[in-house]
Design a protein around this nucleic acid. Structure first.
Length: 283
DNA sequence: ATGGGGGCCTGCCGGC
DNA sequence: TGCCGGCAGGCCCCCA
């Protein structure tokens, strides 16, 4: 489920629990998720202190005192549960293990971080910290949408002459890293651009508008604590509420929310993913 | 090189 | 109640 705002929210919640702390014990309960786990994952985590917790696109990375970096991806259904912290519901106690709890980290001082992933599209890997940016999963990513290198001229160049629909282009992590199905729908709605329009066929001014709109949608979603991640929220005591701010996503058959539009939200399937949009005001 | 589709997994929900 | 199809916030890989 997680796109950039959800991953960033998870990272922020995890930061005070992990940064500066050592992993006392790692319980690795299966061989892998989408790919096999790296050799001796538990052994390489045990005793390591987390020096820095950062995010690149939808990946969470933990630089360790061992010189290695833990790379984490939540896939579609990955969730992180924090327990045993004063903030949590279960102060200094842990809930019973759940189905699909795959990796459990016991942190020095009593906190516990549990990685749960029903569909197992998630990923965990380790690499040398100095090579993290060049890791196979990271190296090909496009610019961070909230960073400086993502700007109007970059996006114009990236979309120029592209024959694919703008929906697919914005989902392409090589073009911009971190958007997923929900936020692309929301961005295109705010921009008034049809998801079916060819990326290379968007007027320059509208391409330029996309940049601040992308920043705005992601920024608002992060401020709202993302759109879901129930388990994590429960433990942390807070709720993500951006789902209440969706203007088109999931609104098939309902009236368009653009003032005065009067259209009705439609759903089309593009390369296997649902696109929600208003055919009346998104062109 | 580009763009599209299949496939990986489990869970949930609605209809019959 | 059970079964079945469709759907789900991702992304690699293969094919034309």
């Amino acid at each position: 489920m997680p796109e950039l705002p959800e991953v960033e929210t998870v990272r922020r919640g995890l930061d005070p629990v992990l940064t500066g702390q050592a992993i006392a014990r790692a319980d690795v309960r299966r061989e892998g998720l989408r790919w096999p786990f790296p050799r001796d994952l538990a052994g390489r985590l045990t005793g390591a202190k987390v020096l820095r917790l950062w995010r690149r696109s939808k990946y969470i990375l933990a630089d360790l005192s061992t010189g290695e970096t833990l790379i984490l991806h939540l896939g579609m259904s990955g969730r992180i549960l924090i327990s045993g912290t004063p903030l949590g519901k279960f102060h200094h106690s842990h809930p019973a293990p759940q189905k699909h709890d795959h990796v459990v980290l016991d942190i020095e001082g009593g906190a516990r971080v549990t990685f749960n992933d029903a569909r197992r599209f998630g990923a965990i890997d380790l690499c040398a910290t100095k090579d993290a940016e060049n890791h196979k999963l990271i190296a090909g990513l496009g610019p961070e949408p909230l960073g400086n290198t993502f700007n109007e001229s970059y996006l114009a160049e990236a979309l120029q002459a592209r024959n694919m629909p703008i929906k697919s282009a914005l989902l392409d992590q090589k073009i911009v890293a971190g958007l997923g199905n929900i936020y692309v729908c929301e961005v295109l709605f705010r921009a008034g651009i049809s998801p079916k329009r060819k990326a290379g066929r968007i007027a320059a001014g509208r391409v330029s508008d996309l940049v601040p709109i992308i920043r705005q949608v992601l920024g608002e979603a992060i401020e709202s604590g993302g759109s879901s991640l129930k388990d994590y929220r429960q433990a942390d005591g807070e709720l993500g509420y951006f789902q209440h701010s969706f203007r088109v996503y999931g609104r098939e058959g309902l009236p368009c929310l653009r003032p005065g539009c009067g259209g009705m939200v439609a759903r089309v399937v593009q390369s296997g993913r649902s696109s929600f949009y208003c055919p009346q005001c998104q062109r």
